[in-house]
Design a protein around this nucleic acid. Sequence first.
DNA 1: TAATTTAGTGTTGAAATAACACTTATTTTT
DNA 2: AAAAATAAGTGTTATTTCAACACTAAATTA
Lengths: 235, 235
Amino acid sequence: MHKYSNQTRHLLAVDCIVFGFDGESLKILLIQRAFEPEKGNWSLMGGFVRQDESLEQASNRILKQLTGLDGVYLEQLHTYGDAKRDPIERTVSTAYFALIDIYKYETQLSNDYHAEWFPMKRVPKLIFDHQEMVEAAKRRIRYKAALHPILFELLPDKFTIPQLQTLYEAVFNTTIDKRNFSKRVLATGLLIKLAEKDKAGSKRGAYYYQLNKQNYYAKFQAFLNFIPNPDTLSL
Amino acid sequence: MHKYSNQTRHLLAVDCIVFGFDGESLKILLIQRAFEPEKGNWSLMGGFVRQDESLEQASNRILKQLTGLDGVYLEQLHTYGDAKRDPIERTVSTAYFALIDIYKYETQLSNDYHAEWFPMKRVPKLIFDHQEMVEAAKRRIRYKAALHPILFELLPDKFTIPQLQTLYEAVFNTTIDKRNFSKRVLATGLLIKLAEKDKAGSKRGAYYYQLNKQNYYAKFQAFLNFIPNPDTLSL
DNA sequence: TAATTTAGTGTTGAAATAACACTTATTTTT
DNA sequence: AAAAATAAGTGTTATTTCAACACTAAATTA
């Protein structure tokens, strides 16, 4: 029995903007919608919120369905509540953005959902207001990454400084002086240098680093100023 | 007729965290809940989202009901969707925070809603998860105000630099050197000095300033670094 | 063994920031 | 009418941070 009688009830959904980094560019995982309307068109992965499920549970469930991954960095982005945003029936949707290690993504799932990675710069036309959600997610990841060390979530456990720099350059669509960059990131105290080298990326090989988890959690909220002149970039 | 059949429908609400500044401390407007459960206990002002109303429309409607104000600075904070957050019946609530000029607030409305201003540091126990919403709003206003000029929304059209400084000191719970503060804010190019003085606050009187609206909108998104060492403050 | 490729590192000038104290205008008190 | 009290307003300097800049080292390939 409903106890707040007389109040309208609404459909509630979550949509996930999934970011990955392939060493080259920042990418977003999209699916081809399986049903009408807009069947076959590109869309974010989403789903309805169930009766006894929190929004976080719903988004984690949907993310797991799509990627096979658990325990992913997931952050609530914004709730989209325009009465006309879904042409079928009014649906309010909370968008979450996720940062995953693209190499942990289970690619066989791509087939199930007709999923595909698109470079951030070449996102196709999307259904409903998903375009707007993606734009907001792009702004948010840049905003947040300029101040907090979230981009490590996109890398594997072991990574090199040149890889990290390429990631920052991709996210901010800029180039950074490598001497200044390495000084800056090492000064955060977030990195632990390993003895091992990555021999794949270059002839000489670059040392692997891993996150100092303790410092990472401790300093996460501080303004780290990872990026020179965030002002001058169009965030 | 429902077209996404089989999907659960949910109650949807908005709750508003209303900030004001009385020249002394940052305050939050709370109401005494008018009905059971928790009747008479302190609560945020909120209400259900109607059938054909967006979340923005709902929050503006509720804010107007409570304060008499239109066109207020209103920003979506977060959506709270825990299945058990409302003990009566599952309700998902999107929290908005509002910044108002406390002297434009129509105080006769206080009676209708048993509303009262509470200093940010002395917020009473609140119903449901409203405490958590208020904490999130406090973090957000600091985070945002450290980088963007939102606090002007709390001041009247004409204000003095000492008033502005008191506001920043209240929000960040710190003291700021007044020479450095005035250099910093004047350097933003956001202020226009008026010929008139405010004679109320001091014997000598302080010059009034007003916002340069054009620069305000143009520079709003830039990282203005309004606050020295935002790191060292517990944001 | 010479050539190629990418990793790794230090210094210096410029700009931003933080620390600091006195004078001025006005009102209130004596 | 003069003195005291109060808050406003303003500049300089040392320190820190930031941006600009180029060569050497390690390993592979030709």
